[in-house]
Amino acid sequence: MIEIHNIHKTFNGNKVLDGISGNFESGKMNMLLGASGTGKSVLLKCIVGLVKPDIGSITYDGRIFANNKLDIKQEIRRKIGMLFQGSALFDSMTVNENVEFPLKMLTDMDRQERQERVEFCLKRVGLEKAGNKMPSELSGGMKKRVGIARAIAPHCTYLFCDEPNSGLDPLTAITIDELIKEITEEYNITTIVVTHDMNSVLEYGDNVMFLYKGKKLWEGHSSTIMDTHVKELNDFIFSNRLMRDAKKVEEIAEEERQEEGQRQEDDKNRNR
């Protein structure tokens, strides 16, 4: 579990994060939701240590991260996997070499152990035959899967995904979502996903935190997100016609259920 408490961050007098607190549980898809410029990526960078908060604390399974000793921070960092928005593969390296890179940097594995781990991770993401390909030979979805393989290669405990569906077609996006979900549950990883994709949120969001202008306005399970009374969240969710139509269908169905329940109750009363 990762816990954050009262996180504040200001850049050049601009308040980007304003007192954000929350818990991100292991084995679940924890999602940071919000429009562009709401502070999602900055919060993610604070959590992984790329940006230092002005105020606040971050703990990884009970261990303080930001202000701890260097060796403790390095130990935690070795357990962090990162899937970048653009996959961030090294163009001059093969797929095998890209996945092996963090193993060389972060582990004491010998060459044989690294090769076995690379083969395992590529097989896990369905790319066991792509090891000798260059990134330029891969589709967008394949690059994302290589990125996931590289992230989990060092046996990560914490996985951070920055807009994993960015630039993907709907079917490929679903495949990537399902893969991240499977890996999260299979290895009991604490996964945090930055997204503005409502399809991903509704289908896979075990815990969703909605940010608006640097503040946390709502947090909960995706099954309850369409029934909130938070105006800013509703404006975000129902900003397109499809979601508005889905909401109307849900409201009509609920009215019909209530009417049917009332009819059944009336029938019972008449038969007494």
Rank of each mutant, 00 (worst) to 15 (best):
L83N: 09
M198E: 00
M134H: 12
M142Q: 15
R124D: 05
G141D: 08
V208R: 06
E25P: 09
Q258A: 10
D91W: 05
R77V: 03
E251A: 11
R78T: 00
G261Q: 07
I4C: 04
M226A: 09
L179Q: 06
K216Q: 11
G167V: 06
G62W: 03
N23P: 00
E260P: 04
P164G: 06
F236I: 00
G214K: 02
E255R: 15
G141A: 05
N234S: 12
M134V: 01
L50N: 07
S223I: 05
F65H: 07
D169N: 12
N234H: 11
G19W: 15
N67M: 00
G37R: 02
K15P: 11
R117E: 10
K144P: 15
L138W: 03
Y204I: 01
G27V: 13
F236N: 04
I152T: 04
E232D: 13
D197G: 10
R263N: 08
L44F: 14
I192E: 08
K104E: 09
N240G: 02
G214V: 02
L179D: 04
A253S: 08
N98V: 05
R241F: 13
L106E: 03
I252N: 08
D267N: 09
R241H: 13
S57Y: 05
T172S: 11
R114L: 02
S92M: 00
L202Q: 06
V95H: 04
I72T: 15
H229E: 15
E185N: 05
E137K: 11
E255I: 09
N67L: 03
F65N: 08
K79I: 00
L242A: 11
K268C: 00
T190V: 07
I176P: 15
R257I: 08
K215H: 13
T228L: 11
F120L: 07
T38E: 13
R63A: 01
F236R: 04
Y212A: 04
M1R: 08
M243R: 02
D266F: 13
A88G: 07
N271A: 13
N68D: 07
L50A: 10
